[in-house]
Design a protein around this nucleic acid. Structure first.
Length: 491
RNA sequence: GGCGCAUUCGUCUAGGGGUUUAGGACACCUCCCUCUCAAGGAGGAGAUCACCGGUUCGAAUCCGGUAUGCGCUACCA
Protein backbone atom coordinates (compact mmCIF):
# COMPACT_ATOMS: atom_id res chain seq x y z
CA UNK A 1 0.00 0.00 0.00
CA UNK A 2 1.36 3.35 -1.07
CA UNK A 3 0.91 6.45 1.03
CA UNK A 4 -0.54 9.67 -0.33
CA UNK A 5 1.15 10.48 -3.61
CA UNK A 6 1.73 13.74 -5.40
CA UNK A 7 1.27 13.06 -9.08
CA UNK A 8 0.85 15.24 -12.09
CA UNK A 9 -0.68 15.30 -15.53
CA UNK A 10 1.52 17.42 -17.75
CA UNK A 11 0.06 17.83 -21.21
CA UNK A 12 1.51 19.97 -23.89
CA UNK A 13 -1.10 22.28 -25.42
CA UNK A 14 -0.37 21.29 -28.99
CA UNK A 15 -3.71 19.82 -29.95
CA UNK A 16 -6.83 17.98 -28.95
CA UNK A 17 -7.06 15.83 -25.81
CA UNK A 18 -5.97 12.43 -27.15
CA UNK A 19 -7.58 9.47 -25.41
CA UNK A 20 -4.13 8.10 -24.69
CA UNK A 21 -3.17 11.23 -22.82
CA UNK A 22 -6.49 11.36 -21.05
CA UNK A 23 -5.95 7.79 -19.95
CA UNK A 24 -2.60 8.82 -18.52
CA UNK A 25 -4.38 11.60 -16.67
CA UNK A 26 -6.89 9.06 -15.43
CA UNK A 27 -4.20 6.74 -14.07
CA UNK A 28 -2.66 9.67 -12.25
CA UNK A 29 -6.03 10.78 -10.95
CA UNK A 30 -6.91 7.25 -9.83
CA UNK A 31 -3.63 7.01 -7.98
CA UNK A 32 -4.13 10.39 -6.31
CA UNK A 33 -7.66 9.59 -5.21
CA UNK A 34 -6.86 6.06 -4.19
CA UNK A 35 -4.06 7.13 -1.90
CA UNK A 36 -5.65 10.37 -0.75
CA UNK A 37 -2.90 12.29 -2.50
CA UNK A 38 -2.85 15.24 -4.87
CA UNK A 39 -3.09 15.60 -8.62
CA UNK A 40 -1.49 18.62 -10.21
CA UNK A 41 -2.19 19.82 -13.69
CA UNK A 42 0.82 21.40 -15.31
CA UNK A 43 0.82 22.84 -18.79
CA UNK A 44 4.02 22.11 -20.68
CA UNK A 45 3.87 24.97 -23.12
CA UNK A 46 7.54 25.16 -23.95
CA UNK A 47 7.13 24.76 -27.67
CA UNK A 48 6.08 28.15 -28.90
CA UNK A 49 5.84 27.02 -32.49
CA UNK A 50 3.51 24.11 -31.91
CA UNK A 51 1.25 25.81 -29.43
CA UNK A 52 -2.41 25.58 -30.39
CA UNK A 53 -4.94 28.16 -29.32
CA UNK A 54 -7.69 26.69 -27.17
CA UNK A 55 -5.84 23.45 -26.50
CA UNK A 56 -5.60 24.00 -22.77
CA UNK A 57 -9.33 24.62 -22.58
CA UNK A 58 -10.04 21.50 -24.63
CA UNK A 59 -7.86 19.39 -22.37
CA UNK A 60 -9.53 20.72 -19.24
CA UNK A 61 -12.89 20.22 -20.87
CA UNK A 62 -12.10 16.57 -21.55
CA UNK A 63 -10.81 16.01 -18.04
CA UNK A 64 -13.85 17.63 -16.45
CA UNK A 65 -16.20 15.68 -18.65
CA UNK A 66 -14.79 12.46 -17.21
CA UNK A 67 -14.90 13.89 -13.72
CA UNK A 68 -11.13 13.91 -13.39
CA UNK A 69 -10.54 16.86 -11.11
CA UNK A 70 -7.18 18.27 -10.12
CA UNK A 71 -6.05 19.80 -6.86
CA UNK A 72 -3.54 22.24 -8.25
CA UNK A 73 -3.33 23.78 -11.67
CA UNK A 74 -3.44 26.89 -13.79
CA UNK A 75 -7.05 27.66 -13.00
CA UNK A 76 -7.22 26.60 -9.38
CA UNK A 77 -3.78 27.67 -8.29
CA UNK A 78 -1.78 25.92 -5.59
CA UNK A 79 1.36 26.29 -3.52
CA UNK A 80 3.73 25.27 -6.28
CA UNK A 81 2.68 27.48 -9.15
CA UNK A 82 2.70 28.94 -11.62
CA UNK A 83 1.45 25.90 -13.49
CA UNK A 84 2.31 27.07 -16.98
CA UNK A 85 5.90 26.28 -17.79
CA UNK A 86 6.07 29.40 -19.93
CA UNK A 87 5.76 31.33 -16.67
CA UNK A 88 8.62 29.49 -15.00
CA UNK A 89 11.39 30.36 -17.43
CA UNK A 90 13.54 31.92 -14.73
CA UNK A 91 13.71 28.63 -12.88
CA UNK A 92 14.98 26.80 -15.92
CA UNK A 93 17.49 29.53 -16.65
CA UNK A 94 18.89 29.27 -13.16
CA UNK A 95 19.18 25.52 -13.35
CA UNK A 96 20.93 25.83 -16.69
CA UNK A 97 23.39 28.38 -15.39
CA UNK A 98 24.20 26.20 -12.48
CA UNK A 99 24.83 23.22 -14.72
CA UNK A 100 27.06 25.26 -16.99
CA UNK A 101 28.97 26.63 -14.01
CA UNK A 102 29.45 23.12 -12.70
CA UNK A 103 30.70 21.92 -16.03
CA UNK A 104 27.72 19.64 -16.57
CA UNK A 105 26.39 21.63 -19.49
CA UNK A 106 27.79 23.79 -22.27
CA UNK A 107 26.84 26.31 -24.90
CA UNK A 108 26.43 24.97 -28.39
CA UNK A 109 26.61 27.23 -31.43
CA UNK A 110 25.91 24.67 -34.11
CA UNK A 111 23.41 25.84 -36.69
CA UNK A 112 20.29 23.83 -37.44
CA UNK A 113 21.71 23.33 -40.93
CA UNK A 114 24.91 21.81 -39.62
CA UNK A 115 22.94 19.50 -37.32
CA UNK A 116 20.74 18.41 -40.15
CA UNK A 117 23.68 17.63 -42.42
CA UNK A 118 25.36 15.76 -39.63
CA UNK A 119 22.28 13.64 -39.07
CA UNK A 120 21.83 12.92 -42.75
CA UNK A 121 25.43 11.77 -42.90
CA UNK A 122 24.98 9.55 -39.87
CA UNK A 123 21.91 7.97 -41.35
CA UNK A 124 23.77 7.45 -44.62
CA UNK A 125 26.61 5.72 -42.83
CA UNK A 126 24.11 3.76 -40.75
CA UNK A 127 25.54 5.24 -37.62
CA UNK A 128 23.37 5.97 -34.61
CA UNK A 129 22.14 9.53 -35.03
CA UNK A 130 23.03 11.98 -32.32
CA UNK A 131 24.83 15.19 -31.65
CA UNK A 132 28.54 14.85 -32.40
CA UNK A 133 29.59 16.98 -29.42
CA UNK A 134 31.17 19.54 -31.69
CA UNK A 135 30.87 22.31 -29.10
CA UNK A 136 31.44 20.24 -26.00
CA UNK A 137 34.98 21.37 -25.44
CA UNK A 138 35.17 24.80 -26.99
CA UNK A 139 37.88 27.02 -25.56
CA UNK A 140 36.91 30.40 -24.09
CA UNK A 141 38.30 32.07 -27.23
CA UNK A 142 36.35 29.88 -29.58
CA UNK A 143 33.23 30.63 -27.60
CA UNK A 144 33.93 34.34 -27.75
CA UNK A 145 34.36 34.11 -31.51
CA UNK A 146 31.03 32.39 -31.97
CA UNK A 147 29.40 34.83 -29.60
CA UNK A 148 30.81 37.70 -31.64
CA UNK A 149 29.06 36.36 -34.70
CA UNK A 150 25.82 37.08 -32.93
CA UNK A 151 24.78 33.46 -32.63
CA UNK A 152 22.47 32.70 -29.75
CA UNK A 153 23.57 29.34 -28.43
CA UNK A 154 21.56 26.50 -27.03
CA UNK A 155 22.69 24.80 -23.87
CA UNK A 156 23.43 21.10 -24.00
CA UNK A 157 23.89 18.62 -21.22
CA UNK A 158 27.28 17.01 -20.95
CA UNK A 159 26.37 13.35 -20.83
CA UNK A 160 29.06 11.17 -19.25
CA UNK A 161 30.90 9.24 -21.92
CA UNK A 162 31.15 6.13 -19.85
CA UNK A 163 29.06 4.19 -17.41
CA UNK A 164 25.43 3.35 -17.22
CA UNK A 165 22.24 4.33 -15.49
CA UNK A 166 19.78 1.85 -14.08
CA UNK A 167 16.43 2.64 -12.63
CA UNK A 168 13.60 0.59 -11.25
CA UNK A 169 10.32 1.15 -12.99
CA UNK A 170 7.29 0.31 -10.89
CA UNK A 171 5.82 -1.54 -13.83
CA UNK A 172 8.79 -2.75 -15.87
CA UNK A 173 11.34 -3.47 -13.19
CA UNK A 174 15.02 -2.65 -13.67
CA UNK A 175 16.00 -0.97 -16.90
CA UNK A 176 19.58 -0.14 -17.76
CA UNK A 177 20.96 2.32 -20.29
CA UNK A 178 24.55 2.77 -21.37
CA UNK A 179 25.63 6.41 -21.30
CA UNK A 180 27.46 5.86 -24.55
CA UNK A 181 24.13 5.57 -26.32
CA UNK A 182 22.86 8.92 -25.10
CA UNK A 183 23.86 12.09 -26.90
CA UNK A 184 24.32 15.57 -25.49
CA UNK A 185 20.71 16.67 -25.55
CA UNK A 186 19.53 20.24 -25.48
CA UNK A 187 18.51 21.75 -22.17
CA UNK A 188 17.72 25.30 -23.15
CA UNK A 189 16.65 26.29 -26.63
CA UNK A 190 17.91 29.43 -28.31
CA UNK A 191 14.60 31.14 -27.70
CA UNK A 192 15.19 30.84 -23.98
CA UNK A 193 12.60 28.11 -23.48
CA UNK A 194 13.63 24.85 -21.87
CA UNK A 195 13.26 21.50 -23.55
CA UNK A 196 10.89 18.95 -22.12
CA UNK A 197 13.76 17.19 -20.35
CA UNK A 198 14.94 20.15 -18.33
CA UNK A 199 11.53 21.56 -17.54
CA UNK A 200 10.27 18.18 -16.46
CA UNK A 201 13.04 17.58 -14.01
CA UNK A 202 13.04 21.08 -12.59
CA UNK A 203 9.28 21.13 -12.15
CA UNK A 204 8.71 17.63 -10.91
CA UNK A 205 11.16 18.43 -8.17
CA UNK A 206 9.87 21.93 -7.49
CA UNK A 207 6.32 20.61 -7.33
CA UNK A 208 7.35 17.75 -5.06
CA UNK A 209 6.06 15.08 -7.40
CA UNK A 210 6.44 11.63 -5.87
CA UNK A 211 5.42 9.45 -8.81
CA UNK A 212 5.79 10.19 -12.48
CA UNK A 213 3.07 8.16 -14.19
CA UNK A 214 3.18 8.42 -17.95
CA UNK A 215 3.17 6.37 -21.14
CA UNK A 216 5.77 3.83 -22.15
CA UNK A 217 7.07 6.03 -24.94
CA UNK A 218 8.90 8.10 -22.32
CA UNK A 219 10.99 5.27 -20.97
CA UNK A 220 13.97 6.16 -23.07
CA UNK A 221 14.10 9.66 -21.65
CA UNK A 222 14.39 8.42 -18.08
CA UNK A 223 18.20 8.06 -18.10
CA UNK A 224 18.54 11.65 -19.32
CA UNK A 225 16.30 12.81 -16.53
CA UNK A 226 18.15 10.75 -13.97
CA UNK A 227 21.44 12.25 -15.10
CA UNK A 228 19.91 15.67 -14.65
CA UNK A 229 18.59 14.93 -11.20
CA UNK A 230 22.01 13.75 -10.22
CA UNK A 231 23.79 16.78 -11.65
CA UNK A 232 21.37 19.07 -9.87
CA UNK A 233 21.73 17.14 -6.64
CA UNK A 234 18.07 16.25 -6.53
CA UNK A 235 16.30 13.06 -5.54
CA UNK A 236 14.30 11.60 -8.44
CA UNK A 237 10.67 10.53 -8.11
CA UNK A 238 9.37 7.02 -8.73
CA UNK A 239 8.86 6.28 -12.38
CA UNK A 240 5.81 4.43 -13.57
CA UNK A 241 5.41 3.77 -17.27
CA UNK A 242 2.19 2.30 -18.53
CA UNK A 243 1.67 0.63 -21.92
CA UNK A 244 0.20 2.59 -24.80
CA UNK A 245 -3.08 2.47 -26.62
CA UNK A 246 -2.69 1.00 -30.10
CA UNK A 247 -4.67 1.25 -33.30
CA UNK A 248 -5.94 -1.90 -35.05
CA UNK A 249 -2.57 -2.17 -36.82
CA UNK A 250 -0.82 -2.23 -33.45
CA UNK A 251 0.84 1.14 -34.03
CA UNK A 252 0.49 3.96 -31.55
CA UNK A 253 -3.11 5.17 -31.72
CA UNK A 254 -3.27 8.23 -33.90
CA UNK A 255 -5.62 10.33 -35.95
CA UNK A 256 -5.48 8.05 -38.94
CA UNK A 257 -7.10 5.31 -36.84
CA UNK A 258 -10.23 7.44 -36.44
CA UNK A 259 -11.47 9.26 -33.39
CA UNK A 260 -8.68 9.99 -30.92
CA UNK A 261 -9.92 13.03 -29.06
CA UNK A 262 -11.90 12.34 -25.92
CA UNK A 263 -14.19 15.16 -27.02
CA UNK A 264 -15.02 13.28 -30.20
CA UNK A 265 -16.27 10.39 -28.14
CA UNK A 266 -18.46 12.77 -26.20
CA UNK A 267 -19.83 14.11 -29.49
CA UNK A 268 -20.44 10.57 -30.71
CA UNK A 269 -22.68 9.87 -27.77
CA UNK A 270 -20.54 7.88 -25.40
CA UNK A 271 -21.18 8.44 -21.71
CA UNK A 272 -18.37 9.71 -19.52
CA UNK A 273 -18.84 6.78 -17.16
CA UNK A 274 -18.35 4.41 -20.09
CA UNK A 275 -15.19 6.13 -21.21
CA UNK A 276 -13.70 6.12 -17.74
CA UNK A 277 -14.48 2.45 -17.26
CA UNK A 278 -13.35 1.48 -20.73
CA UNK A 279 -10.11 3.43 -20.60
CA UNK A 280 -9.30 1.94 -17.22
CA UNK A 281 -9.49 -1.52 -18.73
CA UNK A 282 -6.93 -0.78 -21.40
CA UNK A 283 -3.76 -1.99 -19.80
CA UNK A 284 -5.18 -2.47 -16.35
CA UNK A 285 -7.46 -5.06 -14.82
CA UNK A 286 -8.91 -5.73 -11.41
CA UNK A 287 -9.14 -9.50 -11.66
CA UNK A 288 -10.17 -12.22 -14.06
CA UNK A 289 -13.79 -11.14 -14.49
CA UNK A 290 -14.75 -7.71 -13.26
CA UNK A 291 -15.42 -5.34 -16.15
CA UNK A 292 -18.15 -2.90 -15.24
CA UNK A 293 -16.87 -0.64 -12.51
CA UNK A 294 -18.12 2.67 -11.21
CA UNK A 295 -15.82 5.58 -10.59
CA UNK A 296 -15.84 4.73 -6.87
CA UNK A 297 -14.99 1.09 -7.45
CA UNK A 298 -12.19 2.15 -9.75
CA UNK A 299 -10.77 4.51 -7.14
CA UNK A 300 -11.09 1.93 -4.38
CA UNK A 301 -9.50 -0.89 -6.33
CA UNK A 302 -6.92 0.85 -8.46
CA UNK A 303 -3.32 -0.16 -8.08
CA UNK A 304 -0.18 0.39 -10.10
CA UNK A 305 0.79 -3.26 -9.66
CA UNK A 306 -2.06 -4.39 -11.85
CA UNK A 307 -1.08 -2.30 -14.83
CA UNK A 308 0.14 -4.59 -17.58
CA UNK A 309 3.11 -4.31 -19.88
CA UNK A 310 1.68 -4.80 -23.32
CA UNK A 311 0.13 -2.22 -25.58
CA UNK A 312 -3.56 -2.68 -26.13
CA UNK A 313 -5.67 -2.13 -29.20
CA UNK A 314 -8.57 0.24 -28.74
CA UNK A 315 -11.56 -2.00 -29.37
CA UNK A 316 -14.48 0.07 -30.61
CA UNK A 317 -16.93 -2.83 -30.59
CA UNK A 318 -16.36 -3.46 -26.95
CA UNK A 319 -16.70 0.25 -26.25
CA UNK A 320 -20.08 0.20 -27.98
CA UNK A 321 -21.18 -2.76 -25.93
CA UNK A 322 -20.09 -1.14 -22.71
CA UNK A 323 -21.81 2.12 -23.56
CA UNK A 324 -25.00 0.14 -24.15
CA UNK A 325 -24.62 -1.39 -20.71
CA UNK A 326 -24.29 2.07 -19.17
CA UNK A 327 -27.15 3.51 -21.19
CA UNK A 328 -29.46 0.73 -20.05
CA UNK A 329 -28.40 1.35 -16.48
CA UNK A 330 -29.52 4.97 -16.55
CA UNK A 331 -32.84 6.03 -15.07
CA UNK A 332 -35.39 7.01 -17.68
CA UNK A 333 -35.19 10.64 -16.67
CA UNK A 334 -31.45 10.69 -16.78
CA UNK A 335 -31.39 9.01 -20.15
CA UNK A 336 -34.02 11.37 -21.55
CA UNK A 337 -32.07 14.34 -20.35
CA UNK A 338 -28.85 13.11 -21.88
CA UNK A 339 -30.47 12.09 -25.13
CA UNK A 340 -32.34 15.33 -25.67
CA UNK A 341 -29.44 17.43 -26.98
CA UNK A 342 -28.46 14.60 -29.31
CA UNK A 343 -31.99 14.43 -30.68
CA UNK A 344 -32.01 18.18 -31.18
CA UNK A 345 -28.78 17.90 -33.06
CA UNK A 346 -29.16 14.71 -35.08
CA UNK A 347 -32.83 14.42 -35.97
CA UNK A 348 -33.54 15.24 -39.64
CA UNK A 349 -33.97 18.94 -40.37
CA UNK A 350 -37.71 18.84 -41.19
CA UNK A 351 -38.40 17.95 -37.56
CA UNK A 352 -39.46 21.09 -35.73
CA UNK A 353 -37.28 22.36 -32.89
CA UNK A 354 -37.32 22.70 -30.01
CA UNK A 355 -38.53 19.22 -29.30
CA UNK A 356 -41.24 18.63 -26.75
CA UNK A 357 -39.53 17.37 -23.63
CA UNK A 358 -42.70 15.53 -22.65
CA UNK A 359 -42.96 13.68 -25.93
CA UNK A 360 -39.26 12.80 -25.74
CA UNK A 361 -39.78 11.35 -22.28
CA UNK A 362 -42.49 9.07 -23.63
CA UNK A 363 -40.35 7.84 -26.48
CA UNK A 364 -37.13 7.37 -24.68
CA UNK A 365 -37.99 4.23 -22.68
CA UNK A 366 -38.64 2.48 -25.96
CA UNK A 367 -35.20 3.11 -27.32
CA UNK A 368 -33.09 3.09 -24.21
CA UNK A 369 -32.32 -0.60 -24.38
CA UNK A 370 -31.74 -0.47 -28.11
CA UNK A 371 -29.21 2.34 -28.27
CA UNK A 372 -25.52 1.89 -27.86
CA UNK A 373 -24.69 5.55 -28.24
CA UNK A 374 -26.62 8.75 -27.70
CA UNK A 375 -26.18 9.60 -31.37
CA UNK A 376 -27.94 6.38 -32.35
CA UNK A 377 -30.98 7.51 -30.40
CA UNK A 378 -31.86 9.93 -33.16
CA UNK A 379 -31.86 7.25 -35.84
CA UNK A 380 -33.79 4.85 -33.66
CA UNK A 381 -36.43 7.41 -32.72
CA UNK A 382 -36.66 9.28 -36.00
CA UNK A 383 -40.02 7.87 -37.05
CA UNK A 384 -41.62 9.22 -33.89
CA UNK A 385 -40.98 12.74 -35.12
CA UNK A 386 -41.35 12.63 -38.89
CA UNK A 387 -44.58 13.64 -40.60
CA UNK A 388 -43.98 11.65 -43.76
CA UNK A 389 -42.57 8.17 -43.63
CA UNK A 390 -40.59 6.91 -46.56
CA UNK A 391 -40.33 3.21 -47.23
CA UNK A 392 -40.84 0.61 -49.90
CA UNK A 393 -44.53 -0.24 -50.11
CA UNK A 394 -43.61 -3.87 -50.66
CA UNK A 395 -42.59 -4.09 -47.02
CA UNK A 396 -46.25 -3.80 -46.08
CA UNK A 397 -46.85 -7.17 -47.67
CA UNK A 398 -45.63 -9.69 -45.14
CA UNK A 399 -44.52 -13.23 -45.54
CA UNK A 400 -47.09 -15.43 -47.28
CA UNK A 401 -49.24 -12.40 -47.92
CA UNK A 402 -50.24 -10.65 -51.12
CA UNK A 403 -51.14 -7.09 -51.85
CA UNK A 404 -54.83 -7.71 -51.52
CA UNK A 405 -54.43 -9.26 -48.12
CA UNK A 406 -52.23 -6.42 -46.98
CA UNK A 407 -54.88 -3.94 -48.06
CA UNK A 408 -57.58 -5.87 -46.27
CA UNK A 409 -55.42 -6.10 -43.17
CA UNK A 410 -54.77 -2.39 -43.07
CA UNK A 411 -58.40 -1.55 -43.66
CA UNK A 412 -59.52 -3.85 -40.89
CA UNK A 413 -57.00 -2.27 -38.56
CA UNK A 414 -58.08 1.16 -39.63
CA UNK A 415 -61.65 0.40 -38.70
CA UNK A 416 -60.74 -1.33 -35.48
CA UNK A 417 -58.57 1.54 -34.35
CA UNK A 418 -61.34 3.97 -35.14
CA UNK A 419 -63.61 2.22 -32.65
CA UNK A 420 -60.96 2.17 -29.92
CA UNK A 421 -61.92 4.40 -27.03
CA UNK A 422 -58.62 4.52 -25.19
CA UNK A 423 -55.44 4.25 -27.16
CA UNK A 424 -53.12 2.61 -24.63
CA UNK A 425 -50.87 -0.43 -24.86
CA UNK A 426 -53.32 -2.78 -23.28
CA UNK A 427 -56.34 -1.73 -25.34
CA UNK A 428 -54.28 -2.03 -28.50
CA UNK A 429 -53.19 -5.53 -27.61
CA UNK A 430 -56.75 -6.53 -26.76
CA UNK A 431 -57.91 -5.27 -30.12
CA UNK A 432 -55.09 -6.48 -32.32
CA UNK A 433 -54.47 -10.03 -31.11
CA UNK A 434 -58.00 -11.24 -31.85
CA UNK A 435 -57.87 -9.32 -35.10
CA UNK A 436 -55.07 -11.55 -36.36
CA UNK A 437 -57.20 -14.61 -35.75
CA UNK A 438 -60.13 -12.92 -37.42
CA UNK A 439 -58.02 -12.21 -40.50
CA UNK A 440 -56.59 -15.67 -40.51
CA UNK A 441 -53.11 -14.25 -40.03
CA UNK A 442 -50.32 -15.08 -37.73
CA UNK A 443 -49.74 -12.33 -35.21
CA UNK A 444 -46.35 -11.74 -36.73
CA UNK A 445 -47.91 -11.05 -40.12
CA UNK A 446 -50.46 -8.56 -38.80
CA UNK A 447 -48.03 -6.84 -36.49
CA UNK A 448 -45.39 -6.74 -39.17
CA UNK A 449 -47.64 -4.99 -41.63
CA UNK A 450 -48.79 -2.55 -38.98
CA UNK A 451 -45.26 -1.97 -37.86
CA UNK A 452 -44.18 -0.95 -41.33
CA UNK A 453 -47.28 1.21 -41.75
CA UNK A 454 -46.80 3.05 -38.46
CA UNK A 455 -43.03 3.25 -38.27
CA UNK A 456 -41.83 2.80 -41.82
CA UNK A 457 -39.48 0.05 -40.82
CA UNK A 458 -39.38 -3.66 -40.14
CA UNK A 459 -37.43 -3.39 -36.91
CA UNK A 460 -38.73 -1.09 -34.22
CA UNK A 461 -39.74 -1.13 -30.56
CA UNK A 462 -42.74 -3.30 -29.57
CA UNK A 463 -45.80 -2.44 -31.65
CA UNK A 464 -48.44 -1.65 -29.04
CA UNK A 465 -46.19 0.57 -27.02
CA UNK A 466 -44.98 2.30 -30.13
CA UNK A 467 -48.49 2.93 -31.36
CA UNK A 468 -49.61 4.16 -27.97
CA UNK A 469 -46.83 6.73 -27.93
CA UNK A 470 -47.53 7.71 -31.52
CA UNK A 471 -51.17 8.31 -30.63
CA UNK A 472 -54.38 7.44 -32.37
CA UNK A 473 -54.46 10.27 -34.82
CA UNK A 474 -50.93 9.79 -36.07
CA UNK A 475 -51.39 6.02 -36.40
CA UNK A 476 -54.53 6.46 -38.42
CA UNK A 477 -52.91 8.95 -40.69
CA UNK A 478 -50.00 6.60 -41.29
CA UNK A 479 -52.21 3.63 -42.00
CA UNK A 480 -54.17 5.68 -44.49
CA UNK A 481 -50.90 6.71 -46.10
CA UNK A 482 -49.83 3.08 -46.27
CA UNK A 483 -53.06 2.16 -47.97
CA UNK A 484 -52.56 4.91 -50.47
CA UNK A 485 -49.08 3.71 -51.17
CA UNK A 486 -50.25 0.18 -51.79
CA UNK A 487 -52.85 1.41 -54.21
CA UNK A 488 -50.36 3.56 -56.03
CA UNK A 489 -47.54 1.07 -56.27
CA UNK A 490 -47.14 -1.01 -59.44
CA UNK A 491 -48.62 -4.46 -59.24
C1' G B 1 21.34 1.30 -37.91
C1' G B 2 21.54 1.95 -32.25
C1' C B 3 19.08 1.56 -27.55
C1' G B 4 14.89 -0.12 -24.73
C1' C B 5 10.66 -3.15 -24.16
C1' A B 6 7.05 -6.70 -25.30
C1' U B 7 4.82 -11.48 -27.22
C1' U B 8 -1.82 -16.12 -23.57
C1' C B 9 -8.43 -17.14 -28.21
C1' G B 10 -9.64 -12.09 -33.98
C1' U B 11 -9.66 -8.15 -29.75
C1' C B 12 -9.25 -6.77 -24.23
C1' U B 13 -7.48 -9.78 -20.43
C1' A B 14 -6.90 -13.67 -15.84
C1' G B 15 -3.36 -16.88 -14.48
C1' G B 16 3.62 -15.91 -12.41
C1' G B 17 6.30 -24.01 -11.46
C1' G B 18 1.66 -29.13 -10.21
C1' U B 19 -5.32 -26.81 -8.32
C1' U B 20 -5.70 -25.67 -16.05
C1' U B 21 -9.21 -30.62 -20.32
C1' A B 22 -5.58 -22.43 -19.85
C1' G B 23 -10.71 -18.83 -16.87
C1' G B 24 -13.69 -14.23 -18.10
C1' A B 25 -15.40 -10.25 -21.57
C1' C B 26 -16.32 -8.15 -26.69
C1' A B 27 -17.23 -9.90 -31.52
C1' C B 28 -19.07 -14.59 -34.06
C1' C B 29 -22.52 -19.12 -34.36
C1' U B 30 -26.83 -22.16 -32.39
C1' C B 31 -31.02 -22.57 -29.36
C1' C B 32 -34.67 -20.42 -25.81
C1' C B 33 -37.81 -16.12 -24.89
C1' U B 34 -40.69 -13.31 -28.52
C1' C B 35 -45.10 -9.21 -32.88
C1' U B 36 -39.81 -7.38 -35.47
C1' C B 37 -35.41 -5.32 -33.34
C1' A B 38 -32.93 -4.98 -28.89
C1' A B 39 -32.15 -6.85 -24.09
C1' G B 40 -31.93 -11.38 -21.35
C1' G B 41 -31.03 -16.84 -20.67
C1' A B 42 -28.57 -21.56 -22.22
C1' G B 43 -24.90 -23.61 -25.24
C1' G B 44 -20.90 -23.63 -29.17
C1' A B 45 -16.71 -22.49 -31.84
C1' G B 46 -12.17 -20.01 -31.02
C1' A B 47 -5.27 -20.11 -27.69
C1' U B 48 0.11 -26.42 -29.99
C1' C B 49 0.29 -19.81 -23.94
C1' A B 50 5.49 -16.53 -30.85
C1' C B 51 9.46 -20.17 -31.92
C1' C B 52 13.83 -23.16 -30.45
C1' G B 53 16.69 -25.03 -26.64
C1' G B 54 17.68 -25.47 -21.34
C1' U B 55 16.48 -25.99 -15.83
C1' U B 56 12.95 -29.35 -13.28
C1' C B 57 9.85 -35.43 -11.48
C1' G B 58 6.73 -31.47 -13.71
C1' A B 59 6.82 -24.91 -17.43
C1' A B 60 2.01 -20.63 -20.14
C1' U B 61 4.63 -19.81 -15.59
C1' C B 62 12.13 -19.86 -14.44
C1' C B 63 16.76 -19.18 -17.85
C1' G B 64 19.11 -18.41 -22.77
C1' G B 65 18.75 -17.64 -27.93
C1' U B 66 15.83 -16.62 -32.39
C1' A B 67 11.76 -14.33 -34.78
C1' U B 68 8.23 -10.71 -34.94
C1' G B 69 6.17 -6.28 -33.20
C1' C B 70 6.27 -1.64 -30.78
C1' G B 71 8.59 2.73 -28.63
C1' C B 72 12.62 6.21 -28.60
C1' U B 73 16.56 7.95 -31.53
C1' A B 74 14.58 16.94 -32.82
C1' C B 75 16.57 23.78 -30.48
C1' C B 76 8.57 18.22 -30.14
C1' A B 77 6.51 16.83 -26.06
Amino acid sequence: MTGPVRVRFAPSPTGYPHVGNIRTAMFNWLMARHTGGKLVLRIEDTDVARKVEGAVEAIMDGLKWLGLDWDEGPDVGGDYGPYYQSQRLELYRQATERLVAQGDAYYCYCSPERLEEMRAEQVRLKQPPGYDRHCRDLSPQERAEQQAKGITPVVRFKVPLEGQTTYNDVIWGDITFEHGTIDDFVLLKSDGYPTYHLANVVDDHAMKISHVIRAEEWISSVPRHLLLYRALGLAPPQFVHHPMILGPDRAKLSKRHGAVSILEYRAQGYLPETMLNFLSLIGWSLDDKTEIMSREELVDNFSLERIGRTGAIFNREKLDWMNGVYIRGLSTDDFAQRALPFLEKHLPTPVKRPLSADYVREIVPLIQERARTLVEVAGLAEFFFLDELEYDAGLLIGKNMDRQLAVRTLKTAENGLEQLASFDTESLEDLLRPMAVELGLKTGQLFGTLRVATTGRTAAPPLFQTMAVLGKERCQRRIAAALAMLERSPR
